Computed example of a mutant assay.
Amino acid sequence: MSKPTSMTIAPMAASHAEEVLAIYQAGIDEGDATFETTAPTWETFDSSKLPEHRFVAVDQGDAVLGWVAATRVSDRCAYAGVVEHSVYVHPGARGRGVASALLKALIDSTEAAGIWTIQSGVFPENTASLALHQRAGFRPIGIRERIGRHHGVWRDVVLIERRSPEID
């Protein structure tokens, strides 16, 4: 992928499915993005993500450079304003502000919807993601030690969150 001269952030649609899942699989294959070992089907992915809080970054040719999506953390009323998110960028588009633009779109959409907390879990080895999130206003809230096995190895997860300064 060549360096994009510009990008557009757009709502994620079924027409983006193949590229979104390929970017997800690339992140999975690198080994420090998720406990998942294979990308789900589009139907599974689509049904698990909140439609109003998922976006793609596309270049001038409409190639997907990256995506961000959120899910509910609970159906309990007390957690109505809390979502968990994921953000993935095509390996050839990294370092160009794609993830920052996607996080901004997510933050804007969640704040407009009255969501007060965006959270995620990040492997501590994924220092680029931790730095990106810190720049976007996320803070570490703790480490879940040996929370799960990934390819037979126990992994820790840094819990991060962004509390909206706009929503009380």
Rank of each mutant, 00 (worst) to 15 (best):
M1I: 08
M1Q: 04
P4D: 06
P4K: 10
T5G: 14
T5F: 08
S6D: 09
M7W: 11
T8Q: 14
T8G: 05
I9A: 11
A17P: 08
V20A: 01
Y24D: 05
A26K: 13
A26S: 14
A26I: 01
A26E: 05
G27T: 02
G27I: 02
E30G: 04
G31H: 09
G31N: 03
D32G: 03
D32H: 09
D32L: 04
A33I: 00
T34W: 11
F35K: 10
F35E: 08
T37Y: 07
P40S: 10
W42E: 05
W42P: 08
T44L: 07
K49V: 13
P51S: 11
E52D: 15
R54W: 10
V56C: 14
A57T: 06
A57G: 10
D59F: 11
Q60I: 00
L65D: 03
R72H: 12
V73L: 09
V73F: 13
D75R: 10
D75G: 12
R76N: 05
A80G: 14
A80D: 07
G81Y: 04
G81I: 05
V82F: 05
S86Q: 07
S86M: 04
V87S: 10
Y88M: 07
V89C: 05
V89T: 12
V89Q: 05
H90Y: 04
P91Y: 03
R94L: 04
R94I: 10
G97I: 15
G97V: 14
G97C: 07
V98L: 03
S100T: 13
A101T: 09
A101P: 08
L102P: 14
L102Y: 08
K104F: 07
L106N: 00
I107T: 08
D108Y: 05
T110V: 08
A112P: 15
A113M: 05
G114V: 06
G114I: 02
I118S: 09
Q119I: 00
Q119P: 05
S120E: 06
G121D: 02
V122Q: 01
F123Q: 10
F123W: 06
N126Q: 11
S129T: 02
L130T: 08
L130W: 02
A136W: 15
G137R: 08
F138W: 11
R139W: 01
I141A: 11
I141E: 13
I143H: 03
I143L: 12
R144P: 00
E145V: 06
G152N: 07
G152C: 12
V153Y: 02
R155Y: 12
D156A: 03
V158M: 12
R163F: 12
P165G: 10
P165S: 13
P165E: 11
P165C: 03
E166F: 13
I167Y: 06
D168M: 04
